[in-house]
Amino acid sequence: MQIFVKTLTGKTITLEVEPSDTIENVKAKIQDKEGIPPDQQRLIFAGKQLEDGRTLSDYNIQKESTSHLVLR
């Protein structure tokens, strides 16, 4: 499924993911596309910070959901 990640600069990154993917996996995909190390990434969805060990389905992130990327 596709999800979108919006950066603070207003850029939207499109990612191909599975509901069973962990947040860690998603951060690795963002690193592949954008070159941002996962330890600098914070992903926010529905006002919550997403934890590495959880999956997209844990957070009820469905296709075409948009989460926000904040850099630390």
Rank of each mutant, 00 (worst) to 15 (best):
M1A: 03
M1I: 10
M1L: 08
Q2I: 15
Q2E: 09
Q2N: 11
I3E: 01
F4N: 07
F4D: 05
F4K: 10
F4V: 12
F4Q: 09
V5W: 02
K6C: 13
T7E: 03
T7K: 04
L8Q: 14
L8C: 15
T9Q: 12
T9D: 13
G10V: 02
G10C: 10
G10N: 06
I13R: 01
I13Y: 05
I13E: 01
T14W: 07
L15E: 00
L15D: 00
E16D: 12
E16G: 06
E16S: 11
E16N: 10
V17H: 02
V17W: 02
E18I: 11
E18T: 14
P19M: 08
P19Q: 07
P19T: 07
D21L: 05
D21A: 07
D21S: 07
D21E: 09
T22S: 08
T22Y: 07
I23Q: 01
I23H: 00
E24L: 14
N25G: 08
N25H: 13
N25P: 00
N25A: 14
V26C: 03
V26D: 00
K27R: 04
K27Y: 03
A28H: 11
A28V: 11
K29S: 04
K29G: 03
I30D: 00
I30V: 04
I30P: 00
Q31A: 14
Q31F: 15
D32E: 14
D32P: 02
D32T: 11
E34F: 08
E34C: 15
G35V: 02
P37T: 06
P37A: 08
P37E: 06
P37S: 08
D39H: 13
D39F: 10
Q40R: 11
Q40F: 08
Q40I: 10
Q41E: 01
Q41P: 01
Q41L: 06
R42S: 10
L43E: 00
L43Y: 02
I44Y: 15
I44C: 15
F45A: 04
F45K: 03
F45E: 01
F45G: 02
A46G: 10
G47Q: 04
G47P: 01
G47S: 04
K48V: 14
Q49R: 09
Q49K: 10
Q49N: 12
Q49E: 15
E51N: 07
D52W: 03
D52N: 11
L56K: 00
S57Y: 09
S57L: 11
S57V: 07
S57W: 08
S57R: 12
D58N: 04
D58H: 08
D58M: 04
Y59I: 04
N60Y: 06
N60T: 04
I61H: 02
Q62A: 10
K63H: 15
K63N: 15
S65P: 11
S65C: 08
T66W: 07
S67L: 15
S67F: 15
H68R: 08
H68A: 07
H68T: 12
H68Q: 09
L69Y: 02
L69E: 02
V70G: 04
R72S: 13
R72L: 15
R72V: 15
